[in-house]
């Protein structure tokens, strides 16, 4: 149970968290815009990718294949393979968000790494919706704005790395992961998933290492349990 003051604190924390991720991730849109134009797309195509695809790894993959001389179709296929990750996120989101019809159709476009991570880190529908919308919305607005800015200014805008934003995004993911490492199996899944992803980085296109790490979760969930499962803990009892 939480009182009204804690309730307000909880909501404020979610908004702050969502905006922080939005700013850190959105600013990376400059690098996407610049990379897209440098890879041979025009400003409209760079902006269309950010508006309509709205999934960083898929967008970078499309541009990367084109820039490397691949066909637009192989670029699209790579991007779609990476986008399958977002379908997996729906598994954790659909019940938590509880949206139907038009709202669900609208929310679908905002299903990305960051919004899914923030929403699924909560256990209540109102918190999940707030975290999802603030994170997804702020990333969407800033990502698209900064794509345009990056595409127009090319590389002249400078490198977001100068401001340590790449480290900030890594820290943001870690901060989201941290509360989930409550028991030994969770830590094992996290360590094996990270190791697998790093192993795959030199051998696979960007985004595939993260996608492949989902197999670790599937394996851990499907392996027979050595001890009989205890009573399922109530929602929210972990923290």
């Amino acid at each position: 149970m939480s009182g009204p003051a804690e309730e307000v604190d909880g909501r404020r924390a979610l908004v702050r968290q969502g905006l922080a991720i939005g700013v850190a991730t959105g600013l990376y849109g400059t690098s996407f815009g610049a990379v897209a134009v440098a890879g041979g797309l025009d400003v409209w195509q760079a902006c269309a990718l950010s508006l309509l695809v709205f999934s960083g790894a898929s967008q970078f993959a499309f541009v990367g294949v084109l820039a490397a001389g691949g066909s637009p179709w192989s670029g699209a296929a790579t991007g779609l393979m990476l986008g399958a990750r977002n379908m997996l996120y729906g598994l954790g989101l659909v019940r938590l968000l509880g949206w139907r019809g038009l709202r669900r159709a609208g929310a679908a476009q905002l299903v990305i790494d960051e919004s899914s991570a923030v929403a699924t880190a909560t256990t209540r529908t109102d918190h999940a919706r707030l975290g999802f919308l603030v994170t997804g919305g702020s990333v969407f607005v800033l990502w698209n704005l900064m794509t345009l800015v990056g595409a127009l200014a090319g590389t002249a805008i400078g490198d977001p790395r100068t401001y340590g934003l790449d480290a900030a995004v890594a820290a943001a993911f870690l901060a989201l992961l941290w509360p989930r490492l409550g028991d030994r199996p969770a830590v094992v899944v996290a360590v094996v998933a990270a190791a697998l992803a790093l192993l795959l980085v030199p051998a696979t296109p960007a985004g595939v290492p993260v996608l492949a790490s989902a197999s670790v979760a599937l394996l851990a969930a499907l392996l027979p349990r050595r001890s009989p499962p205890g009573p399922v803990p109530a929602e929210g009892s972990a923290s």
Binding site: Y89, S213, V216, A217
Partner: peptide, 13 residues
């Protein structure tokens, strides 16, 4: 388990 594996991989990458 999915968000644990995916978040961990995202951190590493």
């Amino acid at each position: 388990a999915l968000p644990i594996a995916l978040l961990s991989a995202l951190v590493a990458v």
